[in-house]
Simulated scan of single mutants.
Amino acid sequence: MAQVDTDRFLRDLNELRKIGEYKTGVHRPTFSPEDMESRHWLMERMRECGLEASIDGIGNVFGRHKGPGPHLLVGSHIESQNQAGWLDGALGVMAGVALARAGLPVDVVAFADEEGHYGSFIGSRSLIGLLEDSEIDTLTNRYHGKPLRQALKEAGLEGLPRPRLDPARYKGFFEMHIEQGTQLESQNLRAGVVTGIVAIWQFRIVIEGMQDHAGGTTMAERKDAGLTAVRMLARIDREFPMLCGPRTVWTCGRIALDPGAPSIIPGRAEVLFQFRDIDTEVLERLERCMRSVVQEMNRTERTVSTVEVMSRSKPAPCDPAMQAALAEAATKHANGQWQHMPSGAGHDAQYMARVMPAAMLFTPSINGISHHWAEDTKEEDLALNIRIMADAAEAFLRG
């Protein structure tokens, strides 16, 4: 059996968190100096455990095992959200390094920009051929507007090749990740074997009314797009619980009113709305409900609302054989303290699942906190889960 060095694994994680340190978390936005420092630091760790390290033209860091296969691909990402946590992504990358150090035939990858500072999963999509140069030309940073091409040049990545993965090299892809929720901790569980990654369906709802004076226009005369938006969302929130699955979630992430002044009735409202589930039938049911509510609001309100599809991703079921290997290892190391569970968040694994078998292992998140500098996991749980991952990887390679 492979003997994973849990002490070294924890030391590596704690050393990485010093790069871009922010309070108890990290601030390593994609292609920032701190992010690039962490990528070069990672390449050194890869070389130390015998991997051939490289970085490509979109920022993916790759450690290639030099020996014979069959091989596994293991990894995640190491950039962070702004002023966020030290484990989101980094845990999965350093888990891959730990498995390589234990002598397992794994390639390790740190995908670029999983956190979406410049685009949607541009690193993992690049590796499977779903990122065209024409898209790179259009992408900009969502916070400060810097073009991606400029960021790549400043990071020293301009002109580097963007090779594609060879799926035939791999028996599968493993990703370890923090749960980013409370399901494990609330049940005193220490590990989660992921059954699949949810699809995210996103919509823009535009409501057109009439901009007018907030004092001179009577309530009977108003065509208030803002109030229509509020009533519409309240109606959707009442209807969805009767149609959703056990782990469906929905979110209104933005309501923008135009012109957005206190003494002007808003003539236009833009609502960004999404829902997530692992079951496509549930997603389709929710979309029909949402559109029905919009249609009904157009009948009863003095405004006109339209729905635009922004994106409809696909659920990514985890590979049954890889799940079984994780479950067997979890039973060995945490008998009675683990469960099967879906992932409510998106991960690079959902793109790897398009070209090879893929699976994920979750560690508990203290108080469910993530995308915040207070994000944390007990070190004993981190050590337990790397042992689960090592045993599962070895068993799956033998199977």
Rank of each mutant, 00 (worst) to 15 (best):
A2D: 00
A2M: 12
D5I: 03
T6C: 11
R17V: 04
K18C: 12
G20I: 02
F31R: 01
E34F: 12
D35K: 07
E52Q: 15
A53M: 10
D56C: 11
G57E: 12
N60K: 12
H71F: 14
G75Y: 02
I78Y: 00
E79Y: 07
Q81E: 06
Q81A: 01
Q83V: 00
Q83H: 13
A90W: 01
V93F: 03
V97L: 12
L99D: 01
R101A: 15
R101F: 08
A102H: 08
G103V: 08
L104F: 05
V106Q: 03
V108T: 03
A110K: 04
F111I: 10
D113L: 06
E114L: 08
S120Y: 13
F121C: 07
I122V: 07
I128K: 01
G129S: 08
L130W: 09
I136S: 07
D137L: 09
L139V: 07
Y143A: 10
Y143N: 13
H144C: 12
Q150R: 11
A151E: 00
K153R: 14
A155C: 10
E158T: 09
D166E: 15
D166I: 07
F173A: 05
F173D: 02
E175S: 08
Q180M: 10
L184F: 05
E185G: 04
S186K: 15
V193M: 06
V193Q: 01
V194P: 02
I197N: 03
I200A: 04
I200C: 00
Q202S: 15
R204V: 09
R204T: 14
I205F: 01
E208R: 13
M210F: 11
D212Q: 13
D212S: 15
A214Q: 11
A225R: 07
V230S: 09
R231M: 12
R235G: 07
E239L: 00
F240R: 04
M242N: 13
C244S: 14
T251Q: 06
C252S: 14
L257A: 07
D258A: 10
P259W: 13
A261V: 14
E270Q: 10
L272N: 11
F273D: 05
F275N: 03
R276A: 04
R276D: 05
D277S: 11
I278F: 06
D279E: 15
T280W: 00
E284W: 03
M290P: 08
R291N: 04
T300L: 12
E301V: 05
R302F: 09
A316K: 06
P317W: 06
A321F: 02
L326K: 02
E328F: 00
E328T: 13
H333R: 09
Q339R: 15
G344F: 02
H347W: 08
Q350Y: 02
M352Y: 06
A353D: 06
R354Q: 15
R354T: 14
R354P: 07
P364N: 11
G368M: 08
I369H: 08
T377R: 01
E379N: 11
E380T: 15
L382A: 04
L384Q: 04
L384S: 01
L384H: 04
E394D: 09
G399Y: 08
